[in-house]
Amino acid sequence: MKIFGTSEQNERTKAMINLKNIEKYYENRVIKTYVLRGINLEVKEGEFVSIMGPSGSGKTTLLNIVGMLDAPSNGEYYFLDEPVHKMSEKKLTELHKTYIGFVFQSYHLIDELTVYENLETPLLYQKVNSNERKGRVAETLDRFGMVAKKDLFPNQLSGGQQQLVAIARAVIAEPKLILADEPTGNLHSEQGKEIMDLLKKLNEQGTTIIQVTHSETNAAYGNRVIRLKDGWIEK
């Protein structure tokens, strides 16, 4: 995963994510409820950013907007200098399947597919050919130590194991950016630590990571913390 290019220290690393004045609100005939307001945020390639804040402060919404799963109500979003807010759905799908991997608190594996098949799914949508696909799934299973479990269904695994599969699935397409929404929220501390170590390792290998978390311990794995309160970034 060579994403740093040739440059090292002094050269300014490129901005991967640039959010300008992002707002998100829900409205009905009577009221407008803001979830995010005036968000300005830049994340550079190779960073490990933690988003923190109380429940309802807009963490997950922000993560979803960054991950192109949700559209902002206002504002501009540049991903690798390309204007996301102006893109067609087709282009968005294209962009996010090439660059972004997701990890959720509740794993979100497809219940009807085995571990192997769950890992394979993103590659199918990227139209990776059959031989390469098999190779990459095998390699990933090996790397995550899940070879023995490849034919099991999600409900036959523990929570930690499911989250491991979810991370493996996020990683398999070799994204430049991994978005993790409370990845350890449903796990006990031992399993949580394993997952965090894994994310740290991925970051060291060059993947940009943004995580949402409640835990200061987990936040400490990253190199920058952004605190949200009532939809604003705390200065």
């Binding site: 799963l69 979100h108 799914t121 949508y125 990227q126």
Partner: peptide
Amino acid sequence: GIRKVAGAAR
């Protein structure tokens, strides 16, 4: 939802 996240187009 998961398929969309995994890159499925509409």
